[in-house]
Write a protein that binds this DNA or RNA. Structure first.
Length: 226
DNA sequence: GCGACAG
DNA sequence: ATCTTGTCGC
């Protein structure tokens, strides 16, 4: 994996177009024993990022391990290029994990991206690991509001192409946006997230990863694995 | 040119 | 993304 810090936006766009050719979103039978959640936390106006991955048993969703990494980024946040900011630290956190999950849920989009290479798909291709994207806001595409009950969903469309699902993870609450990352199909991604629902809007892997990295950033947890 | 815009 | 208490609605 090359260094992203000095890439210009046009260069980053070229790399995305090249990496997207390697994305595989064919449906498959997934036997999941461990599922991971990945997220990043940072202080406003700071280039220090606190990345973390939490591993949960599946389908019980009980924490069994984690990895925390502090890193510096020069790449700014630009919508559509989030991966260039967060993926390097997440890959390092992944590398240090002793128990690798069978699939990783990343905070952000999978192929529901202008060039079909959101952070979850980007991470998946760079590591060769199955991944799913679950975002709190839409980046690109259109959808009709799904029903108001847990489990209700509707496709996110980019023209005639389906790029994800608007999924009601909690009744009468704003939906989350699910899309395949790498080595996971469209239906697979929805089934995976559906099985990660707890008491809150945000699916457990992502929610617990967010909680983890925030404690790390505040100094309540040390860098390392556990 | 205008609006939209993950974290 | 982060800073934050109360408050409204189911």
């Amino acid at each position: 994996m090359e260094n992203y810090d000095t890439l210009s936006i046009p260069e980053a766009t070229l790399l995305q177009n090249k990496l997207r050719e390697r994305v595989d979103t064919s449906e498959r039978e997934l036997s999941i024993q461990w599922i991971g959640g990945a997220d990043v936390s940072l202080n406003l106006y700071s280039t220090t990022i606190y990345a973390g991955i939490i591993v949960l048993s599946f389908p019980a969703l009980q924490p069994v391990g984690w990895s925390l990494v502090r890193a510096e980024t020069r790449f700014p946040y630009v919508p559509g290029y989030l991966a260039f900011r967060e993926v390097p630290a997440l890959v390092e956190a992944w590398r240090r994990l002793t128990l690798k999950p069978d699939v990783l849920v990343v905070d952000g989009h999978g192929i529901a991206h202008p060039r079909r290479l959101g952070i979850a798909a980007h991470f998946g291709v760079e590591t060769g690991q199955p991944s799913v994207g679950c975002a709190k806001k839409l980046l690109t595409g259109n959808y009709h509001e799904p029903g108001l009950l847990v489990g209700d969903h509707s496709p996110i469309m980019a023209g005639v192409e389906q790029i994800g699902y608007a999924f009601r993870s909690k009744s009468k609450t704003a939906p989350v946006f699910v899309s395949p990352g790498h080595l996971v199909g469209m239906e697979n991604s929805l089934q995976i997230i559906r099985q990660c629902i707890g008491k809150y809007r945000i699916p457990e892997p992502t929610r617990l990863a967010h909680e983890l990295v925030n404690r790390f950033r505040r100094g309540e947890l040390p860098e390392g694995v556990g």
